[in-house]
Each structure stands twice: as structure tokens, then as C-alpha cells.
């Protein structure tokens, strides 16, 4: 196996993931706040409060910095003439190999948040599986979609 796939996804992915993380944190902030308020109202053991605050800070660090960073570092892909290779995962590093002849179609898509950051994700479908490369630069995604579908067609003709 000749090393990891070479290309990385856009660094702006980090910003988007952080926004997602923030949304998640807002929800858990509400939950933490509710518990703290309940403890105060019902005169519960006060020593829990600093622990909860620490937990919240820890969660914030995890979801805003640690996880997005690690995920970005892990995410790699490479499109070669005969195959596509993807590597991803936080705790579990997963590498996927898709032979080019098996590619049925390629989609690129862009949500509102992605649009703001000029990002797009590319989805590669085979007859059995769907694989996504998230958060590529808009133009890169477009180019990738085009080149994969062209390579897939060439690979088809060869068979």
C-alpha cells in the first residue's frame, strides 16, 4: 500500500464544523443551565455545579477544537485513473477503495452554510455504496465531479 491518499479537504471545513459544534453546544448549554438552575432552586448539593461547568468547558474544547482538527487531519482523498481512495475517521481510521469501473454517478451538493464558505461536497455512488467527500472548495468539487465522471466513463469503455 503506497502511503496515504495525498489530497486534503478544504481548511474552511474547520469553520463549518465549528459552527455545527456551536449549535450542538448551544443545546447542551441549555441542558447544563437547566440542571444548575434546578440544583439552586431545590437546594441540591452545590459541589456539582463547578463539575458541570468544567464538563461544559471540556465539551466545548472537544467539539470546537480537538475533534474538528483531528477530523480534518484524517480526511484525505485521492482520485487516480483507475480508482478513488478515501481516508477518514477519528478513533477508527477507515480507508475506502472504489474501483473507477464501479462508479455509477457523481453528485456535488452545497447547503446554505457551505455556500457561504464557498464549499461543496462530492458524493460518489456505486451500485452498492455511497461515499462522500465533504467540504471541498467549490471549484475543486466541480472539477472533481467532472473528472471522476469522465474517468468513470473511460474505465467503462475499457471493459
Amino acid at each position: 500500500m503506497n502511503g496515504e491518499p495525498r489530497k486534503r479537504i478544504s481548511e474552511r471545513a474547520l469553520s463549518v464544523w465549528r459552527i455545527y459544534g456551536m449549535i450542538g453546544l448551544a443545546v447542551s448549554f441549555a441542558a447544563f443551565a437547566a440542571v444548575i438552575v434546578l440544583i439552586i432552586i431545590f437546594d441540591g448539593p452545590k459541589w456539582i455545579i463547578p463539575i458541570l461547568i468544567l464538563l461544559f468547558i471540556g465539551e466545548g474544547y472537544l467539539f470546537l477544537f480537538f475533534i474538528p482538527r483531528l477530523r480534518w487531519r484524517r480526511w484525505r482523498y485521492e482520485v487516480r485513473e483507475q480508482e478513488i481512495e478515501i481516508q477518514q475517521g477519528l478513533f477508527t481510521v477507515r480507508r475506502t477503495l472504489i474501483p473507477m469501473i464501479r462508479v455509477q454517478h457523481v453528485d456535488s451538493k452545497q447547503g446554505p452554510l457551505f455556500k457561504k464558505y464557498k464549499l461543496a461536497s462530492v458524493t460518489i455512488s456505486t451500485a452498492a455504496t455511497v461515499h462522500e467527500i465533504p467540504a471541498l472548495d467549490e471549484e475543486e468539487a466541480e472539477e472533481l465531479r467532472y473528472s471522476i465522471s469522465r474517468l468513470a466513463r473511460v474505465a467503462y469503455d475499457d471493459v
Binding site: T92, I98, T126, A128
Partner: peptide, 16 residues
């Protein structure tokens, strides 16, 4: 071989 649509190799931290 020509029926395999995709292949996946993975390892968790413990496996690694």
C-alpha cells in the same frame, strides 16, 4: 474481484 463495488480497510486506535 470484478464484482466488488468498494473495499474498506479500517483500524481503531486499539487495533492499531
Amino acid at each position: 474481484k470484478n464484482r466488488i463495488q468498494s473495499m474498506e480497510a479500517s483500524s481503531t486506535w486499539f487495533q492499531k
